[in-house]
Every structure is written in C-alpha cells, then in structure tokens.
Amino acid sequence: MNNSFFKVRDIIIIAAILAAAFILYIGIEYTSRQGYTAEILLNNEVIKTLDLREDTLYSPEELPHVVFEVKEGSVRFMESDCPDKICVNTGYINKRGQTAVCLPNRLVLRIRGNDVDTVL
C-alpha cells in the first residue's frame, strides 16, 4: 500500500464531518426539546401514546369524562371528573420528563425522556 499518511485536502473533509456533527446536534436538540411524544398511563400501564406534533383531543375508553388535548406541541388534561382538578390545573406540559397526574382516576400523563431523574 502506498497511500499517503495525510493530505491537505483531508482538513476540508474533517471540517465537513465536524460540521455535519454540529448540524446533527442542533437538529437533535431541537427535536428533543419538542418532546414530541406523550404517554398516558392508566393503573401504571401505557394505554395511549400521543404525537405532540398533531393537534388532537383524546378520551380513554375506560374514562370518557377525562379529555386530553394536544395543541401546538403541548398536552394537558383538558377535562376531568375528579374532585380536586389537580390534573387540569397543572395545565399544558411540553418538556421532556414533565408529568401531570390525576390520582383519583389513576392517570398519569408524561412526556418521554428526562433531564432530571425526579422532581420533588
């Protein structure tokens, strides 16, 4: 083999690879900030996954009085028949790891991924 060890042209190629990595990084950061999927858990089991890029309304079959709303990348408990309304008052959530909980209905709404392990 008589390949050269290093060519000046390599610098340009390496720069291009690094630039691609940077663009990839920006893209991933951007999309992960969008969160883009939320899970609804009933009794500890995922009953529905919502795509936050599409505005929609959703009611679990088991709990027709609870309504989830997805709007502009955020999701919330829009309506609930529980007495305390903590879930509804939590409002929109849209960041990775955020949760809204309805204890009376045993429902958890959460956005996948997290940058802290828990919030107290």
Partner: peptide, 28 residues
C-alpha cells in the same frame, strides 16, 4: 416529595429537580 436514593457506579449521581412551587408542576 420525599426522595431517597442509592448510588453505585451505574448511577453515580441522581439529578433531582426542586419543584417550581405550583401544584402538580413538573418544572423545577
């Protein structure tokens, strides 16, 4: 609101967010 954690090499530190003082908030 009461957190305990155990750590070893697979999780040297747990990151805990102090909740924004609003009901049900998961912002920290």
């Amino acid at each position: 609101g009461n957190v305990i954690c155990l750590n070893d090499d697979s999780k040297p530190l747990w990151k805990i967010g102090v909740q924004k003082p609003e009901e049900g908030s998961s912002e920290y």
